[in-house]
Amino acid sequence: MINKALPYYLEDRSGSYAGSDFDDIYDRLFLRVSRPPGSATDGPPNALMIYNVGRRSSNQRDYRPLQREPSVALEFGPSGTLGQISFMGTSVSMPMNQYLKKVSLFGGSLIRKFRASNGEEYKWTYKTESEHQWSCTDSGNYVVAHYNLKPPNKPAFRTSGNMLTINETHASLAIGELLASLTIMRHVAAYHL
C-alpha cells in the first residue's frame, strides 16, 4: 500500500529542461515537459508545454502519444529571452518576468520568487542549500521542493539520477507552478538571463 504522505519523488528522465518526463517513483504522478509538436529541437526553445499525463506503466514509457491539452504553456522570445507563461484552463497569462520576479533589483537572476495560486509566495534559489542544486522555499524559509541533476561522475543504475522532490503538502502546486517555475529558472540559468 502506498503511503500518500510521502514526498513526490519525480525522476527527471533526461535531465534536459527543454524536454523530459517526470515520473513519481511511487507511480502517483506523471508529468512531461516538451516542445510543441513540429517545433525545432535544436537551439533555444520557442515554447515548452507542461502536461499532466497521469499514470503510465513502465512498459509504455516514452511511447505514449500526447493526446491531451497542456496544463501550462511557456512561450519564449527571440534568442531564448523570457516571454509569456499561460495557465491553461484559466484566463491567467502573464510575462515570465512578472510571474517569476527577481528578489532584489541588484540581486542575481538565479534567485526569484513567485506567488502561487494558493496565495503564498515561494522562492527558487540556485545552489544555496548544500545538498540541492535548486531549492524552492516558502515565506517561512521551509524547503517545499528541490531539484538535483546527477553529477556526471556518479553512477546511476536503472535510473537517470535526476530528481525533483516535492513535499506532499504542496503536491497541488506540482504541475502548474512548481515544475513551470523550475523550468523557467533552468532556462534563465542556461541562457544567462
Rank of each mutant, 00 (worst) to 15 (best):
Y142L: 15
G107M: 04
T137M: 11
R112L: 05
S104M: 08
G119T: 09
N148T: 13
P151N: 08
D138L: 07
T159H: 00
G108R: 03
E121D: 15
N118T: 12
T128A: 06
A145T: 05
W124K: 04
Y126H: 15
F157N: 04
Y147M: 05
K127A: 15
L164I: 10
T165Y: 00
E121H: 04
I111D: 08
E129A: 09
I111L: 06
S109K: 05
K102S: 04
L110M: 12
S117D: 06
Q133V: 14
N162F: 08
E121I: 15
K150V: 11
S135F: 07
P95W: 03
S130V: 12
L100P: 00
N162Y: 09
Y126V: 14
R158L: 02
E129N: 06
G140Q: 11
K113E: 13
S117Y: 02
W134T: 03
L100I: 07
H132Y: 15
M96D: 00
G107Y: 01
P95H: 02
F157D: 05
W134S: 02
E120Q: 09
E129S: 09
E121A: 10
K154R: 10
S135I: 10
V143N: 02
L164T: 04
S130Q: 10
T125S: 15
K101W: 04
Y142R: 15
R115N: 09
T165C: 07
L149T: 11
P151Q: 11
Y142A: 07
Y147D: 03
R158V: 00
P151S: 11
P155G: 04
Y142F: 14
S109W: 05
V103D: 05
G108I: 04
N118S: 14
P152A: 10
N97M: 06
H146D: 12
N148L: 06
N162T: 15
K154H: 11
Q98Y: 04
R115D: 11
L164W: 01
R112A: 06
K113D: 13
T125K: 02
C136I: 11
L164Y: 01
E131R: 09
K102Y: 02
H132K: 12
N97Y: 03
A116I: 11
E131H: 08
S139R: 12
N141I: 13
K113Y: 06
K113M: 10
N97H: 03
N141T: 14
M96N: 00
G119M: 12
E131Q: 09
N148C: 12
W124A: 04
T125M: 08
Y99C: 01
K113V: 09
G119I: 13
Q98T: 07
V143D: 01
K127T: 15
N153E: 14
K113S: 14
A156R: 03
F106C: 05
K113C: 07
K154Q: 11
T125C: 06
N118K: 12
K127N: 15
Y147N: 01
A116L: 12
R112G: 09
K123Y: 09
L105D: 05
R112S: 05
V144A: 01
N118R: 15
P152Y: 05
P152D: 14
W134Q: 03
K154M: 13
Y122K: 03
F114N: 00
P155T: 08
